[in-house]
């Protein structure tokens, strides 16, 4: 039996896309790049100490004293070790892919919750996306978007979007049938039911998904650095390839600090909102 020429097929699909969808990819690349640039411009605008001070205030609002202390001390260490611009690049990349994941993932999750047909397609695709080794995404991403931060964001989004979709779907489906029935019984339109009842009640679950998505995209930064995404991941990658243990540890520590701060922020944002409401 001859071997199925799967690799050839994939190659020809990629070739076709490269030829005919180039304009679309350019547009996507422009959009993504400008978002990343906007974030890093915004974050690099103030002096690091000013940035840290603002971060501290936000941390206090979101998670009280302990988060404030951790964020301030952590980012001071990063600045002190000399990884400030790289960390900001990485933060911008992670926030961009997080933002794109939410913009795409939440509506997809809602769709999957509403339609059995949609979820029958979306769920296996998500399984595929999550289990396919992340390196495999790098090649087509590079083919379509060349080197740099854009394919890094694309690869991160593909790798990191599944939890947002899954948990949005789960969150909507978990809203008790009696509550959606009550919304219907009072004459809500589907939009009113979604925005006034289902989404607010699903919010903690959706936020858990967003939190996971951000963590996953952060875990992609080292891999993304292989295709030219600047940032702290590139420092780790360089240290590894040059066997500089100390430098690798420093850069790795910066990733950890960033990860913990992002994690606590996304975990707490919703809780404080609820308390205030």
């Amino acid at each position: 039996m001859p071997k199925i020429p799967l690799a050839d097929w994939i190659n020809s699909i990629v070739d076709w896309m490269e030829e005919y969808l180039a304009g679309f990819f350019d547009l996507v690349a422009d959009v993504i790049e400008s978002i990343v640039d906007f974030f890093s411009y915004l974050f690099l605008l103030p002096h690091p100490f000013v940035f840290i001070a603002i971060l501290g205030v936000l941390a206090f609002l979101v998670g009280r004293t302990s988060l404030m202390l951790f964020s301030v001390i952590g980012f001071l260490i990063i600045d002190n070790l000399g990884y400030w611009p790289q960390t900001i690049d990485t933060l911008s990349l992670v926030l961009t892919s997080g933002l794109i994941s939410v913009i795409l993932g939440v509506p997809l999750g809602i769709w999957a919750a509403y339609s059995k047909g949609a979820s029958r397609i979306i769920i296996p695709v998500l399984d595929f996306m999550q289990t396919m080794p992340a390196f495999v995404y790098l090649l087509p991403a590079v083919t379509f978007f060349s080197l740099g931060v854009v394919p890094g964001v694309i690869a991160s989004v593909i790798f990191a979007i599944p939890p947002t979709i899954r948990l949005t779907r789960l969150g909507i489906m978990q809203v008790s049938g009696e509550l959606t029935e009550a919304a219907d019984a009072f004459g809500s339109t589907s939009g009113q039911k979604l925005f006034k009842v289902q989404l607010p009640l699903a919010m903690p679950t959706i936020m858990a998904g967003v939190n996971q998505t951000i963590m996953l995209s952060l875990s992609m930064v080292v891999i993304a650095s292989m295709i030219g995404a600047q940032g702290i991941g590139a420092e780790v990658y360089r240290a590894v390839t040059q066997l500089q243990i100390g430098k690798g540890f420093e850069a790795g520590l910066a990733v950890v600090i960033l990860a913990i701060v992002l994690d606590r922020f996304t975990q707490n944002i919703f809780k404080t909102k609820k308390r205030g409401a």
Binding site: E178, L179, E181, F186, G187, S188, K196, V197, P200, L201
Partner: peptide, 22 residues
């Protein structure tokens, strides 16, 4: 029209209250 009836003419009270917790 059905929405109108539900909004103006018929209301419902549920066994497990079905209050919106948020």
């Amino acid at each position: 029209d059905l929405r109108k009836v539900r909004r103006k003419s018929i209301s419902m009270v549920f066994q497990k209250f079905a209050l919106f917790p948020h």
